[in-house]
Design a protein around this nucleic acid. Structure first.
Lengths: 189, 189
DNA sequence: TTAGGCATGTAAAGTGTTACATGATTTG
DNA sequence: CAAATCATGTAACACTTTACATGCCTAA
């Protein structure tokens, strides 16, 4: 399932222009399937060429015509079809985790910064989803997906905070007395 | 950070051939940075051309020479440098979630199948990490990353199981009596 | 007056995925 | 006897990302 198919899906909910779709990809879809103009506009042109969507150009003053795309019957069929045929992949690509894998080669300050930033980003994601997405979700699917994002981000933030001590050799000030300090899996119930 | 840089990082741990690296990308790195031969072999050739790794060809019978790559001083510097400069992205691309977003357009059986399969896959990931990765992790970073993967997969599986009822209109047999059944965020503490 | 929102798109570069091509040895 | 493992690589294809190109309106 690519950006093109997802555009089709979003247009099955309501008509929209490329700019509108970009907003959706940049907010609701951001945490699991972000996309930019460079993918969206060609996708829309392609869908229109295949007769899966119609395009109505609405003249505007001071900006380009607003091209409002709406799904056709053929488009609806094609989307349902894609939904049933596509196998649901779920791929993470995390330079963050790759970096942490090599934490022992990193400068301590840099490591702390990377960890702090990532946790903050995750917490912001949780806040955003809980305030913006959950409130505004109309379909069950949208709510489920928003909730999923929030729960995962929350779990990730908690894991990082409760396990980051694993990554730093010693708390520098006092020499450790407790053997559990070095235990790899403490707090990993 | 691309596959090339990660190959360099893995070679900073120990010398290896392309085949060995593929195994790492397909096991330890699978849940956050998978890669295939098509990325790895060109990456190694490139690293060698830049003098960041050396290549020793070990003749074998019945199979191609084993090309064992080892990192050079320049390679070590380059990797540390990449570690400090690269900004740690963390991107999910989930056709699974995209699909679920449109759950109301899906056939009930298909939806159940997709959900079941994904949960099973997540549980398998947890099992794998706990049995294979956690036991064999040598560095703190490797352990941390393995634990992260297990915790997230676990949380995802639990979320799906406890919230999938949101996606199906009614439990078919008996008409629902409890108003909470339809509550969007039940069990979302 | 400056930043942000609205609104369209293209083109090149970068990367990864998949399929292809080969072939002996080992394990069940 | 079949399947998996070991071991190399290339080439085409697909797709996304990023930079570029344009320009008015509105709110702070």
């Amino acid at each position: 399932m690519d950006v093109k198919t997802l555009c089709l899906g979003l247009l099955s909910v309501r008509p929209a222009c490329g700019y509108d779709l970009k907003k959706t990809f940049g907010t609701s879809f951001k945490h699991f399937f972000p996309a930019g103009y460079g993918s969206i506009y060609p996708a829309l042109a392609d869908l229109a060429a295949k007769g899966l969507v119609n395009c109505e150009e609405i003249p505007q003053v001071g900006k380009p015509d607003r091209k409002v795309y709406s799904i056709t019957k053929a488009g609806e069929r094609a989307f349902i079809d894609a939904l049933n045929r596509t196998e649901p992949q779920h791929k993470l690509r995390s330079e963050f985790l790759a970096m942490i894998y090599f934490a022992d080669l990193m400068d301590d300050n840099r490591l702390a910064e990377v960890l702090d930033d990532h946790v903050e980003q995750l917490r912001e994601t949780v806040r955003y989803i809980e305030h913006q997405e959950m409130a505004g979700s109309k379909t069950a699917g949208a709510s489920f997906v928003a909730g999923f994002g929030a729960v995962i981000a929350q779990a990730a933030a908690e894991y990082i905070e409760s396990h980051r001590h694993m990554l730093t050799p010693a708390p520098e000030s006092e020499p450790q007395e407790d053997a559990l300090t070095n235990c790899k899996w403490a707090a990993n119930g």
